[in-house]
Design a protein around this nucleic acid. Structure first.
Length: 659
DNA sequence: CCTGTACATAGCAAGAATCC
DNA sequence: GGATTCTTGCTATGTACAGG
């Protein structure tokens, strides 16, 4: 393979002026370590003499790599004379972009014996290495930030697409298969967090940099084609000193991330001859959203691609025939326009390739089961469900004995698989499609399945607010990594568990990750946020509520400390980031953990999955439905890709029930 | 229009390397 | 020594295209 590694030490050195302009136009760091877009002024002074970062290890042209393959990059910091700058002894890599092992080792986010063992080892290392990097003064440390941009559009930054996140999770699960298959738990927050990890550095968090260079084993974890990028990705590096002043900037040569296992150098010409040149595609803007966008819209173009793909075509075979013969219902423009997204033409092929085919292997809730003849579209389901719910074979009459829910999702599912009913629906759909084609606006169609604006989070004008914690319990020994989902988060916030501050990392305006402090006693504590400059009072939130509860007007979130030892039985919460749902619990929804069940577990298991567990809001259930049924339907909605978030899926499920 | 062929994509697995 | 990560190759299936 004509990969990048045969490269002579060719380099790409972006001019200082260009780099500076690039940075000045749109860079602002966040705690993920990535360089994110910003409409506000960047935190850069007018630094016209920033140094240059030279990236070695990638061929100037035609570099290719796979998502699994590590690229051994060397980065150098050069001054205007091209000499290496040796003013800093170490360089710190962005922790979120480190591989798990390295990150865990560096941040002590593990729990229990493993964490203690790591701490002991670290202590030993410290003792052995008096010049250990851990003791390096901050002034001697450069802070590296990195992001992935497109060669075809340098202003287009990319995040990992959801499909690649899934692939990485599945890959990780396979590697753990010796222990237990499918322990990774899907969660929106984790997903969003993982999407920032399109770059992974398999390296220590702190590297020696006193020679002005260091080696970065780097992996780009998403395919170029998933972003309609035909020329490859570049890695954009910036370095900042301890005061966050820009020190240097540079960009790697373009790297095409493909999954081609063959020797492309032999085939390239032939392919070029045979393949038609695809029409130019509007670039999918993967820029990070503004806080408002991020909070109000949980999917972006990439998600929309996936939604389009799975809604319109995927998971049925043969795909080509379906596309050509039976699937004109939802034009590509439709979803994009309806969602207020930039329309990208000619996306069908690529979008289909991005569908989560992983679901193919689950055997669970394959849309084929629901719509055996053709894949369901939004219209399908919208048109279908009313007749379904009112049909003679409706679950009200055919419900299983003992079922407490008159219209349980399971019966819906069984009814949906009925070919005659579907056939009827299909005819009805065709008729209605003709009749309504010009009557229903796209917005109306979409609103039938997306939550009304009123159900979306209110405008975030009132300061940080915690809406959800994942998981919401951990052992008293602390150390567990908890994801806080909410709004208006910003860097510097500190999360308090009771009156104990937690190590808190800012991920995005809607996401914080913190490490649970230990607790002497099991029980429930409130979780609140404090800005760094707030009152120094350390009193309990109950007596002096912290910011989130004050500003939001909502009661603080509650977190449960469980005893430090829990037997490894089903349903117990692992104190690490992985936790397992009870698969043998009764139908009592109260026994469920507030998180979505493991998609990956289902994907790798032939067992029927447990119903999804979502946060219950009393009173939002339709009459006759129990929470578990709603959760099951929510799960089905998610599996049908009718929604990209748990919240949306639940709203859709509730709406369907109300129909 | 149909069919065969080659290419593209994705998933998976095994073994090596490395880390702890 | 176990866990994790990296590398590489194989298989299956979808897709595009040329030729009959």
């Amino acid at each position: 393979m004509a990969t990048l590694f045969d490269a002579s030490p060719t380099t790409t050195t972006t001019s200082l002026k260009q780099q500076h302009n690039d940075l000045y136009t749109a860079t602002e760091s966040n705690a993920t370590g990535t360089v994110t877009e910003s409409t506000s002024s960047p935190p850069l002074q007018n630094n016209t003499d920033a140094y240059q970062i030279r990236v070695l290890g990638i061929a100037d042209q035609g570099a290719k790599s796979r998502v699994e393959t590590q690229i051994r990059l060397t980065i150098e910091l050069l001054n205007n004379q091209g000499e290496k700058v040796e003013d800093w002894s170490h360089i710190r890599l962005p922790a979120p972009l480190l591989t798990t092992k390295r990150r865990n080792a560096s941040t002590s986010t593990l729990s229990g014996n493993k964490r203690r063992s790591l701490e002991q080892q670290q202590q030993q290392q410290q003792q052995q290495q008096q010049s250990s990097s851990l003791t390096v003064p901050e002034e001697s440390i450069l802070h590296l930030r990195a992001s992935v941009i497109c060669e075809s559009d340098a202003n287009r930054k990319v995040k990992m697409c959801q499909r690649c996140v899934w692939r990485e999770w599945k890959r990780a699960d396979r590697k753990k298969a010796g222990r237990r298959l499918g322990t990774t738990v899907y969660d929106e927050t984790l997903m969003e967090r993982e999407r920032h990890r399109i770059l992974l550095f398999n390296s220590d968090p702190l590297l020696v940099f006193n020679s002005g260079e260091c080696v970065l084993p780097t992996r780009i974890t998403c395919y170029s084609r998933h972003h309609d990028e035909r020329q490859g990705f570049r890695i954009k590096f910036t370095m900042h000193d301890h005061c966050d002043n820009l020190v240097g900037a540079g960009t790697s040569p373009p790297i095409m991330i493909t999954d081609d296992h063959k020797n492309l150098s032999k085939l390239g010409d032939k392919r070029r001859r045979r393949r038609k040149q695809k029409p130019a595609v509007s670039p999918v803007n993967e820029s990070l959203p503004t806080p408002e966008e991020e909070a109000l819209a949980t999917f972006d173009h990439q998600d929309a691609h996936m939604l389009l793909a799975t809604t319109a075509t995927e998971q049925q075979l043969p795909l080509a025939k379906i596309k050509q013969e039976s699937l004109p219902q939802v034009p590509a423009d439709f979803l994009f326009d309806s969602m207020g997204l930039e329309n990208t033409t000619s996306t069908t092929k690529d979008a289909s390739s991005m569908a989560p085919s992983s679901l193919d292997h689950t055997g669970y809730l394959d849309p084929c089961l629901f719509f055996p003849n053709t894949p369901p579209t939004m219209q399908d389901i919208q048109l279908f469900l009313p007749s379904l719910l009112s049909s003679p074979s409706s679950p009200t009459e055919s419900g299983s004995p003992g079922s407490s829910s008159p219209t349980s999702p399971l019966t819906i599912a069984s009814t949906l698989t009925s070919p005659p009913l579907y056939q009827h629906h299909h005819q009805q759909q065709q008729q209605q499609q003709q009749l309504q084609q010009h009557e229903l606006s796209q917005q109306e169609m979409m609103h039938a399945f997306l939550p009304p604006l009123s159900t979306l989070p209110p405008p975030m004008m009132l300061g940080p607010k915690i809406e959800r914690m994942i998981p919401d319990q951990a052992t008293t020994e602390g150390g567990a990594e908890i994801t806080l989902l909410g709004s208006n988060f910003y860097e510097g916030l500190t999360c308090y568990f009771g009156d104990k501050p937690a190590l808190t990392a800012y991920w995005s305006p809607t996401t914080l990750v913190c490490t649970v402090p230990s607790s002497l006693h099991a029980g429930t504590v409130s979780v609140t946020l404090d800005p760094p400059s707030s009152s120094s009072s350390s009193s309990s939130p109950s007596s002096s509520p912290h910011m989130s509860s004050l500003s939001s007007g909502h009661p603080p979130q509650l977190f449960t400390y469980t005893p430090s030892y829990t037997s490894p039985t089903e349903g117990m919460i692992n104190s690490s980031t992985h936790h397992v749902l009870s698969s043998s619990s009764s139908s009592s929804s109260s026994s469920l953990v507030s998180t979505k069940p493991s998609l990956l577990s289902f994907m790798s298991s032939n067992d029927a999955p447990p119903p999804p567990a979502v946060v219950t809001t009393p009173g939002d259930l339709a009459s006759g439905w129990d929470e578990q049924s709603v959760q099951t339907l929510t799960w089905q909605v998610l599996n049908l890709n009718m929604a990209q978030t748990l919240h949306d899926a639940r709203q859709i499920a509730l709406k369907l029930i109300q129909l």
